[in-house]
């Protein structure tokens, strides 16, 4: 594997890795909720303390987790700029022409940074600690009540896991084709935007041809093995809730309570 993508499964075999994927999906919801419930710097301090604790338990190098922020850097930047300039509250620090920067705006932007970073870091922990297969299995289970609404849960799960399965394959293929065209003198980084887009054709066309060929072959292979996505299919690895998951759940509940306490000012105690 050449370039390990950000947020890609990072095996360490830790406590978190061995949790049931459903627990981790639930944790994802708790993280998202926490990020929006927290509304003070103290609450964020608690969030990050919790996050660092989880990262330590997962035994994933912190730098590896931090790398995932790169992918949303521009979104963070954009929302900070918008808030610095358009959120007006409290003392005016800078005022020039139509632009006003206020103390409240800066503080609020700081919170936005912390909130977005927390969202990305905590949810990427889920993909860092579970394999795509585990995640789709987990999702299938979580979505299974939708079956009663005639929603094709199993088919959707299969489609998802096939899509996930082929991401690295197609990436590898892109790599190979790019190299082959480079060897024939193709240049991908010169010229204007139009020339650059056109330069991608020699990669995109073979990539599409091969994606369709693979899809075709896979369909035949599924057919040949009488695959029909019926309910009778069983799983090799059955998901089981264990004491680990119970521990995680209690821990998450504690975390959410703490954050909620911060919001209510400890029920007026502080």
């Amino acid at each position: 594997m050449r370039n390990v993508a950000f947020g890609q499964y990072y095996p360490t075999g830790s406590f978190i890795h061995r949790l049931d994927p459903r627990t981790k999906l639930f944790a994802g919801i708790v993280f998202i909720a926490a990020a929006f419930v927290a509304d003070s710097y103290w609450a964020y301090l608690a969030c990050y303390a919790f996050l660092i604790f989880v990262i330590l338990v997962s035994k994933i190098p912190i730098l590896q987790v931090l790398k995932t922020i790169k992918s949303v850097f521009f979104i963070i930047l954009l929302s900070v700029i918008l808030n610095v300039f358009f959120h007006h509250e409290g003392k005016v620090l800078v005022s020039w022409w139509k632009i006003k920067i206020t103390a409240g705006g800066l503080l609020y932007s700081g919170q936005i940074i912390l909130r977005l970073m927390f969202l990305v870091l905590s949810t990427s922990l889920i993909t860092l600690t579970s394999t795509p297969t585990e995640l789709t299995d987990g999702l299938e289970k979580v979505m299974s009540p939708l079956k009663y609404l005639r929603f094709p849960v199993h088919d959707v799960a299969i489609i998802m896991s096939i899509a996930l399965r082929f991401i690295p394959t197609l990436m590898e293929e892109t790599d190979k084709i790019t190299m082959a065209q480079k060897a024939r003198g193709a240049k991908f980084d010169t010229g204007g935007p139009f020339a650059r887009a056109k330069a991608l054709l020699p990669v995109l066309i073979p990539l599409f041809v091969s994606a369709f060929r693979r899809a075709d072959e896979l369909a035949f292979a599924l057919d040949a093995r009488c695959y029909n996505a019926t309910e009778a299919r069983t799983k090799m690895k059955i998901l089981r809730f264990g004491w680990k998951d119970l521990t995680a759940f209690l821990f998450l509940a504690l975390f959410l309570t703490v954050i909620a306490f911060f919001r209510s000012g400890f029920f007026g105690l502080l």
């Binding site: 190979k176 084709i177 190299m179 082959a180 065209q181 480079k182 060897a183 020699p202 990669v203 041809v209």
Partner: peptide, 21 residues
């Protein structure tokens, strides 16, 4: 690199999958 690639012609595995035109 362009000069290098012109000197060394490289045929990859299954090169027929790289035809595009």
């Amino acid at each position: 690199l362009m000069k290098l690639r012109k000197h060394v012609g490289m045929l990859f595995q299954y090169p027929e999958y790289q035809l595009f035109a």
